[in-house]
């Protein structure tokens, strides 16, 4: 399978001596929906900055659809669409101008640019606001504007840096749906996010970056397969006077109606429910304490911290 993105030995040392990237290798397949995860300051935005020519690399090589960023930067730029973390449009320009201009920067003829801007704004529910200046939009609308702008020149690779930060859940889910459609139409997507549910819902493959190094690079399925335990929260039908003791299942007493139970993969759930049955405890509902990927992510990052 051909690669949308190939990174080899990418290093970045800032002028203050901070080594943001310590020689990372990464590849993203064409058509993939790929998550680049990591804690704050791990090197995600620096990596994206280098790919998008906003940060100068110290060493290493970046290729986008086989074109070298250094040797053929114009072709690389043509294939990229970027939704940055921070708003970076002219707050005093009307939306239609922002999106149409973006198409113009990529050489799209004015009539077609206007047409594409209309399509893009309509798809993201912003057409009614087209004549308003960007400053008047809500936070969620500004995020959607950046997506509309990034897609107007029909890039082959779309990079989204925290695209749903600060967006309410309803809007986030509608944005997920839209991004899925974009991916299904053939656009490769790389996503960084702090909402790990988002990565789990949308992405097929994942890389976790920490302290400027890739500590995991695999499929989401394989990554979740590595989980050896999950923490579940059980809501009890009746209050319990004293903490329960569940043999083989470490548990924490939250309140008289709620307990947290750690469930190891090799033990499964049947024995737990057998034990609860034996003690006459009826469970009303059960849910994961945290998103599964989030739990795994924290384990990986924490074990990385301990090692370092």
């Amino acid at each position: 399978m051909s690669h949308a993105l190939e990174i080899h030995g990418l290093k970045k040392v800032y002028s203050n001596g901070f080594e943001a990237l310590k020689g990372i290798d990464l590849s993203v397949n064409e058509g993939d929906f790929f998550a680049l995860l990591g804690p704050n300051g791990a090197g995600k935005s620096t990596t994206i900055g280098i790919i998008t020519s906003l940060v100068n690399k110290t060493a290493g090589r970046v290729k986008v659809f086989g074109n070298d960023l250094k040797a053929d930067s114009m072709q690389v730029k043509r294939d990229l669409g970027v939704v940055p973390q921070e708003f970076n449009f002219n707050m005093f320009e009307p939306l239609l101008e922002i999106v149409t201009n973006q198409a113009g920067y990529y050489g799209v003829e004015p009539v077609l640019a206007r047409q594409r801007a209309e399509e893009s704004l309509k798809k993201l529910g912003l057409w009614d606001k087209r004549k308003e200046i960007a400053r008047s939009l809500s936070g969620g609308m500004k995020r959607r504007l950046m997506i509309a702008r990034a897609l107007v020149h029909q890039p082959k690779l779309l990079i989204l840096d925290e695209p749903t930060a600060g967006v309410d859940i309803e809007l986030r889910r509608s944005m997920w749906q839209y991004l899925r459609e974009v991916n299904q139409r053939g656009t490769t997507i790389i996503l960084t996010t702090h909402y790990l549910e988002e990565a789990e819902q949308l992405c097929r493959n994942v890389a976790i970056i920490d302290h400027g190094q890739i500590i995991e690079n695999t499929s989401i399925k394989a990554l979740l397969g590595k989980m050896d335990r999950e923490t579940m929260i059980l809501e009890l039908a009746k209050p319990q006077a004293a903490p329960l003791h569940l043999e083989g299942y470490p548990s924490t007493w939250v309140d008289s109606h709620t307990i947290e139970v750690e469930i190891y993969r090799n033990r499964g759930l049947n024995a737990l429910f057998g034990e609860l049955e034996r003690q006459g405890v009826m469970v009303k509902s059960m849910r994961n304490k945290a998103n599964r990927l989030e739990e795994l992510f924290l384990d990986l990052v924490e074990s990385g911290v301990k090692k370092s």
């Binding site: 020519s53 906003l54 730029k77 970076n88 990529y106």
Partner: peptide, 18 residues
């Protein structure tokens, strides 16, 4: 300076324009 301050100069820097 306005384009730097509001960061929309990035629109141009990431676009395929010499």
């Amino acid at each position: 300076y306005g384009s730097k301050f509001q960061r929309y100069v990035e629109e141009l820097l990431i676009a395929p324009i010499p």
